[in-house]
């Protein structure tokens, strides 16, 4: 890297190979000079190489993460058309007022929230239960763990497409099963709550096993003697789960909640491909249009990149608020325990 200038380097003490410098009045031999040079290079290396090692990540992050994120904020204050993305006209906050006046923005925000809850809560609760079971001594435990991860290996596209068929109104397997036990057929596309439930099912299916593994890892890190002393106090297995397992898992649970919340706020591929027409409206009545889809619709279907930027920036601000709330809650929890 260009930053490796030796002038800034003060002599370091830990130079293992550095030989004692020759006294000033004796002219140093060639070999001593060479060693001296080597040792200086060595010191420079020790001092600057850590920065060289971490800099590629930060350069990439600035180029493809930070700069675009900030530029999104800048673009959100302009009118930018998809067909001419470099022509930007300053409009101030008008993009924001436009989307806040749009009922479909609020609809999408609401759908994102409800789909987020329907997909995250059951997913994490099931993952917790599954991890608890996987934590027993099991025959073929590796088999179960790998099987639970198979949905994670399946792409959003493949998973969404098969669930469209399984949730088909007339010939889908799920309605057939409901019919067998005497229920009416459900319209998983057109009705609001069933469609949101169906989209959430795709998310739940793909991520439950993954989260279970994360919980399992945390459970295995809980010291065994906590359970032993709880058992000595006569705690039942259920009480052990409540009073030993859950408190020890608190940071991990918080972590998965944060990650799932972020994932839920970005939901895009599942609702796009679940729509029979593969459109960006999230169903004929926008019944399962998420913010991610709304952003795509505004930017790439209606071709208003400026407005899409305003949506992206709004989503970013929402995430920051969620992050702050999370931070406060986790501090409260830590303070109380």
């Amino acid at each position: 890297m260009a930053t490796r200038h030796d002038t800034a380097v003060p002599p370091t003490k830990e130079g293992g190979t550095a030989p004692g410098r020759a006294p000033a009045d004796v002219p140093p031999s060639e070999a001593a000079k060479r060693r001296d040079r080597l040792s200086r290079r060595w010191q420079r290396d020790v001092r600057w190489s850590p920065y060289a090692f971490v800099s590629p990540f930060f350069l990439l992050f600035v180029a493809f993460g930070l700069f675009p994120l900030i530029y999104t904020g800048w673009a959100s204050l302009h009118t930018v058309e998809l067909t001419a993305p470099t022509d930007m006209d300053w409009v101030g906050l008008r993009n924001y007022t436009r989307i806040f006046d749009d009922e479909f923005f609020w609809n999408a925000a609401q759908n994102t929230l409800t789909i987020g809850i329907i997909s995250t809560v059951p997913q994490l609760v099931m993952a917790l239960g599954l991890a608890h079971i996987l934590n027993y001594k099991l025959r073929g435990s590796t088999f179960y763990r790998v099987v639970m991860l198979a949905p994670y290996a399946t792409s959003i596209a493949a998973a969404s497409l098969v669930f469209v068929l399984l949730f088909g109104r007339d010939y889908g397997m799920i309605n057939w099963g409901l019919g067998m036990v005497g229920f009416d057929h459900v319209d998983w596309q057109l009705d609001k709550w069933p469609s949101q439930f169906a989209v959430s099912t795709i998310v739940i299916w793909r991520w439950t096993g993954y989260n279970a593994l994360i919980y399992l890892a945390a459970m295995q890190a809980i010291p065994q003697d906590l359970y032993e002393s709880a058992a000595l106090d006569g705690a039942s297995r259920w009480r052990q789960f409540i009073h030993v397992t859950l408190p020890s898992l608190r940071p991990t649970i918080l972590f998965t909640v944060v990650v799932s919340t972020i994932g839920a706020s970005q939901l895009f591929g599942e609702p796009l491909l679940f729509d029979e027409n593969k459109g960006a409206s999230g169903g004929a009545e926008h019944q399962f249009q998420t913010l991610g889809l709304y952003l795509y619709e505004q930017g790439w279907i209606n071709q208003h990149l400026g407005r899409a930027s305003a949506i992206a920036w709004t989503m970013f601000l929402i995430l920051i608020v969620i992050g702050v709330i999370n931070y406060v809650i986790s501090r409260r929890l830590r303070a109380s325990s």
């Binding site: 530029y71 972020i262 989503m315």
Partner: peptide
């Protein structure tokens, strides 16, 4: 710097797509 790395894990890359799309165009 490590804190920044952890912080960036919390920012979904999808939010950066519009400028990236402009760059690509």
């Amino acid at each position: 710097l490590m804190l920044i790395v952890i912080g960036t894990m919390m920012v979904p890359p999808q939010l950066s797509i519009i400028p990236l799309y402009m760059m690509v165009a």
